[in-house]
Deep mutational scan, measured.
Amino acid sequence: TTYYDVLGVKPNATQEELKKAYRKLALKYHPDKNPNEGEKFKQISQAYEVLSDAKKRELYDKGGE
């Protein structure tokens, strides 16, 4: 599973699309609303952290993490 899959976006997604997808999923899986989905929330946050940063995203796209 790639970070793009976690957020449900395509690899060519814009920053705005990433932000929108992250917010939607973060609300859905937030531990306050969904106590059993803490791990999913962490995955979503990690994916967004990497993909929202241009340098980290470039490194990730080249095969790094």
Rank of each mutant, 00 (worst) to 15 (best):
L51Y: 00
I44S: 01
G64P: 11
P11V: 09
G64A: 14
T2E: 07
Q15H: 10
T1G: 13
E39K: 08
Y48K: 01
D53G: 03
S45N: 12
T2D: 11
A47F: 02
I44F: 03
L59A: 14
K10S: 13
L7R: 00
Y60H: 04
E49P: 01
K19T: 14
K62R: 12
K62Q: 13
E37N: 14
K55N: 11
A21G: 02
V9E: 01
P35F: 07
T2A: 07
A47S: 03
S45A: 12
V6C: 06
K19Y: 13
A26F: 14
N36C: 11
E39W: 12
L18G: 00
L27Q: 15
G38C: 13
E37K: 08
K40D: 04
G38L: 15
L59T: 08
A26H: 09
E65R: 07
E49H: 09
I44R: 00
Q15A: 13
Q43N: 06
E39P: 06
V50H: 05
Q43K: 09
Y3L: 12
G64K: 10
T2H: 09
K40M: 12
P35C: 07
Y48M: 05
D5W: 05
K24L: 13
G63Y: 15
K33T: 13
L25Y: 03
S52E: 03
Y3N: 02
E16T: 09
N36D: 12
S52R: 08
Y22N: 00
E17V: 05
Y48A: 01
Y22R: 01
L25F: 04
G8Q: 07
P31S: 06
G64S: 12
V50C: 09
V9H: 00
P31L: 05
Q15K: 08
E49L: 11
K62W: 06
K56D: 06
L7N: 00
L59C: 11
G64W: 15
H30V: 05
A54Y: 09
L7W: 00
Y29R: 01
L18P: 00
Y22D: 00
A21D: 01
N12I: 06
Y3H: 06
F41R: 04
Q43G: 06
P11T: 08
E37F: 15
Q43A: 13
L7E: 00
L18E: 00
E65D: 12
E37Q: 11
D32T: 12
E58Y: 09
P11R: 10
N12C: 11
F41Y: 09
N34Y: 09
G8W: 03
L27T: 12
Q43I: 11
D5I: 05
S52C: 08
V6H: 05
T14N: 07
D61P: 04
K28M: 14
Q43T: 09
D32Q: 08
V50T: 10
L18K: 00
Y60L: 04
K20Q: 14
H30C: 09
E39H: 08
A54P: 15
R23F: 14
Q46P: 01
T2I: 05
N36I: 09
L59K: 10
S52V: 07
Q15Y: 12
A54E: 12
K19Q: 12
L51V: 03
K10L: 11
E37A: 11
P11G: 05
L51C: 01
Y48D: 01
A54G: 08
E65C: 14
Y22I: 02
A47D: 00
T14S: 11
E37H: 15
E65I: 14
K20W: 11
D61K: 02
E39L: 09
A26P: 00
Y22G: 01
H30S: 11
K55Q: 10
D32K: 10
L51R: 00
G38A: 15
L18S: 00
L25K: 05
Y22W: 08
K24D: 15
Q46F: 09
G8I: 02
Y22P: 00
L18H: 00
D5E: 11
D61A: 02
N12F: 07
V6I: 15
T14V: 03
E58K: 07
K33H: 14
Y60G: 03
A54V: 13
Q15P: 12
F41I: 05
E17F: 02
K33S: 12
K42I: 11
G38H: 14
K56C: 12
D61R: 02
D53L: 03
E16S: 10
G64V: 15
E49R: 09
Q43E: 14
Y29G: 01
K40V: 09
E37M: 14
L27K: 12
E58D: 13
Q43W: 09
K42M: 10
Q15I: 11
H30Q: 07
A54H: 11
E49T: 07
T2R: 05
A54L: 12
E58H: 09
E37R: 05
N34F: 09
H30D: 12
E58I: 07
S45R: 14
L59R: 11
P11W: 10
P11S: 12
D61Y: 02
T14K: 05
Y4M: 01
T14I: 03
R57E: 02
A26Q: 10
E16H: 08
G8K: 05
V6K: 04
K40P: 03
K42F: 09
A13L: 02
P35Q: 08
K62L: 10
K62I: 08
L25D: 01
K56I: 05
A47M: 04
R23D: 15
S52M: 10
A47E: 01
V6S: 03
P11K: 10
D32I: 10
K10Y: 08
L51H: 00
I44Y: 03
K19P: 00
D32C: 14
Q15M: 14
K42Q: 13
A26K: 10
T1S: 11
E16Q: 12
